[in-house]
Simulated assay, not measured.
Amino acid sequence: MTSRDEHLATLVELTKESRFCMLTTVDTDGTLVSRPMSRQDVDLDVEMWFIATRDSRKAQHLRANPSAGVTVSTDTSWVSLAGTAEIVDDTAKLEELWSTFAEAWLPEGPQDPNAVLVRFDATTAEYWDNPGGKVSTLISLAKSKLTGQPYDGGENEVVTGL
């Protein structure tokens, strides 16, 4: 049986190369809304951080309903995280996480009064991993076609209690 720490290590390994992800929030009418975000920091044992604007739709969604999801993908893996997110006003943390990339949206820097943080805390995750990459996928697809057996897409796990 795989321990929580082993699952967390796998999740970190599968997501560490991906700077960008999709953050999903819930609109006031219940519609799920996803948008690309740049991760500022990741420690799946605790939290993920994003920089946002205070007046953004995502910030409005999270103030009304903290339920959120994050999806991260690479060439060989896909991770779906579910949990909660909150808007955080913390200038010191914003300065710590600030990058020149964030300046495209907030040119005044971390002191911009419209700059806020989004802290995402994962409670569950599901991941799919094909460690052999594209070549392994193509071989597995060809094998499936030749043998008539279902495609084995690699490892798939659901992780709870994060």
Rank of each mutant, 00 (worst) to 15 (best):
S38G: 13
L23E: 05
S67A: 14
V46A: 15
D90E: 12
G153A: 11
T25L: 02
V12S: 12
P113V: 02
A52P: 00
A85Y: 03
L62F: 08
A92R: 14
E13G: 11
D45T: 13
D112C: 01
V79W: 08
T137H: 05
G154H: 02
Q149V: 05
W105K: 03
T10P: 02
V88H: 01
E108W: 02
D27H: 15
T124A: 11
A142W: 01
T84R: 15
D152K: 11
A9V: 05
V12A: 15
T100W: 12
E86D: 14
I139W: 08
V33F: 05
T74F: 01
G109M: 07
Q60G: 10
S38H: 06
A64K: 10
Q149G: 01
E157W: 05
I87T: 05
K134T: 09
K93P: 06
A82W: 09
G148L: 04
R35D: 05
S136R: 07
Q40D: 11
G30K: 04
W78T: 00
K16W: 02
T84D: 12
M1H: 10
T25R: 04
W98G: 06
W128M: 06
S67I: 05
W98Q: 04
E126D: 09
W105P: 00
V88L: 04
N114Q: 13
